[in-house]
Design a protein around this nucleic acid. Structure first.
Lengths: 311, 311
DNA sequence: CTGAAAGCGCTAACAT
DNA sequence: ATGTTAGCGCTTTCAG
């Protein structure tokens, strides 16, 4: 039945046919009980509205389905107790592995739950203090790319709009932006820091762009922040890129399909998915030994939203 | 252990304490095998990028978690084979029930898979020809509400922008819009019909609004269609609501947070979640007998995007 | 290469 | 009110 090696072709086919005729459905619970493997992989992401995670989940689901695994997702909306609950459920349900990017990376209870988690853990761009396979994004190189691109176009005043969440991406981006500015010989100025990536920033962006000496370029987070930024620009009658240049952090359908298309920092999603599946499968099969920590860079997708500074 | 009735308080507590001290984790697979119930509920939605489904999934997950169920989601991105695969996986994995809003409602293979599905099915706004509990949305009343609202403001030429998908919402909305127009004594005119709700409509909207006698109002689907419509309006320098009135079909963070906030047709999500959970739980517990078919209306959230017609 | 037997960890049914 | 027993449907192991 299960493609075991060393079975006569004839027998195999006879069995398969009989199974089909009888409408036989293998029972996953019995299988899991006996084989001590649920063939279930859990994902815990902070935010289902972030297109990165949605797309990633879709790809992972596809890729892992090929290997016979079912992928489960939980989104915590950043709520601590939902994250704890999700990890507990993953443990109870006997996930064969989990992939996590929680909204809380230092909470002691989360750390403790993860330390005694009974299956392999893959951590995605979070500085959680546990031994686990990990992939982090290179936010410093990314900001160098974005700021460098704008500096080369003559922009000297750049407005960053990233949320100030307490996880790695938020923490790193601000430091990385400042470093990149200094690296380009520029001085960081005003900034907009929404509480979460899903906080609208209409008012704040409008205020930051209404002064006399307004920034000539922006680097903007690609979730809710980008729509409300575009809303503010339309309201101020500022055209992209004639009046202001724009780079999105994280690529999305919105950035690609906007008119004009918006230059964006993009992660190579297929590399991301490959790294995660390769690692997770190796762990499940017991092939991995050393903990793996990799860094993934962003690429700058140059589109039509940046232009030489008018200032 | 399991809160069974008729156990001495003392015994119960002793057991609970021992369990905690030993770090006992019940095994979900064994439980599922023995009790013939996985306590798993599967959702199959056509589109994870539709905020209705994302929000619904979040609420369902919360609500069903209280009852001890784990909610699983699969998005098919409208692909037929992914939908078939998802249903098969749900069957294999012994879901206790499934909630479905697939992108294909008439495909014979899908119908056949659902007919012999071994657990209760709840159908969400789809005309799938099977016997199953069902909740459908009242698209006719919704369009009456939206068109009526605009007609009362003096609008006579209204541009509808809904996708022309082959499922109930798409099929109904076009008919409902035409009926509502005639009901208000108006004549349907130009329309934009993107292939899917995720198709950008910048060009088509721009074209439709560039004629001499342009529509003074629009009714626009609330997914990717709304951002690209706003993009087109900004590009044409048309202000909402001064130059054109706007109603979104389906509420979203974007509609609420936009400046000005966009009037939207909203579903009462808590009623939606309650109906689904109540029905699904009753089925699982064997309490339901008759197939239930309910209709849920939309409410018109009047916000600042509509104004008396200037024409 | 194939058939038979044991048992994964629970819960339902029954006996006490 | 508590203790005991059988067996859910598979896979693993061992014997033929």
């Amino acid at each position: 039945m299960n493609e075991a090696p060393g079975v006569m072709e004839q027998t195999r086919e006879a069995v398969q046919r009989a199974a089909r005729e009888l409408g036989y459905q293998p029972n996953a619970a019995a299988r899991a009980l006996r084989s001590r493997s649920s063939r279930l992989i859990g994902c815990l992401f902070s935010d289902l509205e972030n297109p990165l995670y949605t797309r990633l989940f879709n790809s992972l689901q596809d890729r892992l389905a090929d290997e016979g695994f079912v992928t489960l997702i939980t989104a915590s909306a950043g709520k601590l107790d939902r994250e704890k609950q999700a990890i507990s459920i993953f443990a109870e349900r006997g996930m064969d592995a989990i992939v996590i990017a929680p909204g809380h990376q230092q909470d002691p209870e989360i750390v403790q739950l993860l330390e005694k988690f009974p299956a392999p853990i893959f951590v995605l761009d979070r500085d959680i203090p546990i031994q686990a396979d990990r992939l982090v994004f290179d936010h410093f190189a990314a900001m160098d790319l974005a700021v460098g691109h704008l500096a080369k176009l003559g922009h000297r005043s750049i407005l960053p709009v990233f949320s100030h969440q307490n996880t790695r991406p938020g923490l790193m981006r601000h430091a990385a932006f400042d470093a990149a500015m200094r690296g380009a010989g520029l001085t960081p100025g005003a900034r907009v820091e929404p509480e979460t990536p899903n906080t609208p920033v209409f008012r704040e962006v409008q205020a930051a762009l209404s002064c006399d000496d307004r920034p000539t370029a922006m680097i903007v987070q690609g979730t809710h922040v980008l729509p409300s930024t575009l809303n503010a620009l339309a309201n101020l009658r500022l055209r992209v890129p004639e009046d202001i240049s724009l780079i999105a952090v994280g690529d999305s359908a919105l950035a690609e399909e906007h008119v004009p298309p918006i230059t964006a920092l993009r992660l190579d999603r297929s590399a991301l998915v490959e790294e995660i599946t390769a690692r997770v499968l190796a762990r499940i099969r017991g092939q991995a030994t050393e903990v793996s920590e990799k860094v993934l860079g962003y690429q700058l997708m140059e589109r039509a939203s940046c232009r030489r500074s008018i200032a």
